[in-house]
């Protein structure tokens, strides 16, 4: 469980104001919002890149301030993938396990399984700089998945994919989520993607959480004018078509 209690943080000119948010254990939570509203910053607060100026972030009831990022059991898939450019795909994926005492044949097997699942087994020897956006995205997913994190942070994980691959990966992701029941915090500006994946949705506008609720509810009953006009940017009918 992740809980934001009155969290505020100022980064340069941007500020996130008094965020209160509760994400339940095992839930697929989607943060929806226009660009530049602090979605990535929220994920980074969960992962521990920043500490709040005011308020607290709790992870499983513990004040996260006392847990360094490496002990938060978090998998982070960044918007720009953030692959390690000096390591090939295999070493990127195996990076986490190789830090521990896991024997390398076991690591090899796990990398292979994940790579097969994500359709990147032919890329293992390549370097990130030579991959397409979609390929990098899948490597980034694999690198996070392999740690079997308790919390998965996905920052626009399907941004660079064509609609078919996207649908396929969405389904795969949903299936894995149902199977392993880790908590997912997922950021997107794609309403379809949100409708397809989310258990609950949080709408964030201009550094504030405006509305949180079960996804259908949020789409059908926007809390106020601002949320309505943000959601109104796309026809609502398409959202639940898929």
């Amino acid at each position: 469980m992740i809980r934001f209690a009155d969290v505020s943080i100022k980064l340069g000119d941007f500020s996130l104001k008094n965020v209160n948010l509760e994400i339940k254990e095992g839930e697929f939570f989607t943060i929806l919002g226009p660009t530049g509203t602090g979605k990535t910053v929220i994920l980074e607060l969960i992962a521990g890149l920043y500490r709040p100026d005011a308020g607290k972030v709790f992870i499983n009831g513990v004040d996260a301030e006392n847990i360094p990022p490496e002990r938060r059991e978090i998998g982070f898939v960044y918007q720009d993938y953030a692959l390690f450019p000096h390591l090939n795909v295999y070493k990127n994926i195996a990076f986490g396990p190789q830090l521990g005492k896991i024997p390398s044949p076991i690591i090899k097997e796990r990398v292979k399984d994940l790579a097969d699942m994500l359709g990147i087994s032919h890329l293992l020897k390549r370097f990130p700089g030579t991959l397409s956006g979609g390929e990098q995205q899948r490597v980034s997913l694999a690198r996070a998945f392999i740690m079997k994190p308790r919390i998965l942070l996905l920052d626009e994980p399907f941004g660079a994919l064509d609609p078919n691959t996207k649908r396929m990966l969405c389904r795969e992701l949903k299936k894995m989520h149902l199977q392993y029941r880790y908590t997912v915090v997922h950021v997107t500006h794609d309403f379809n993607e949100a409708g397809m994946l989310a258990d609950r949705i949080g709408i964030i506008l201009e550094g504030r959480v405006r509305q949180v609720g079960v996804s259908r509810e949020v789409f059908e009953n926007p809390l106020d004018q601002k949320v309505a006009s943000f959601l109104g940017a796309e026809p609502l009918k398409t959202v639940f078509a898929g």
Partner: peptide, 28 residues
């Protein structure tokens, strides 16, 4: 990119490990 070092942290690196394995080689 400082996020690379941070990603290494989320994958289990201590600050020192993240520096040795990510920032230093990329500064070669």
């Amino acid at each position: 990119n400082p996020r690379l070092e941070f990603i290494a942290r989320t994958l289990g690196c201590t600050p020192a490990q993240a520096f040795w394995k990510i920032t230093l080689p990329l500064s070669k």
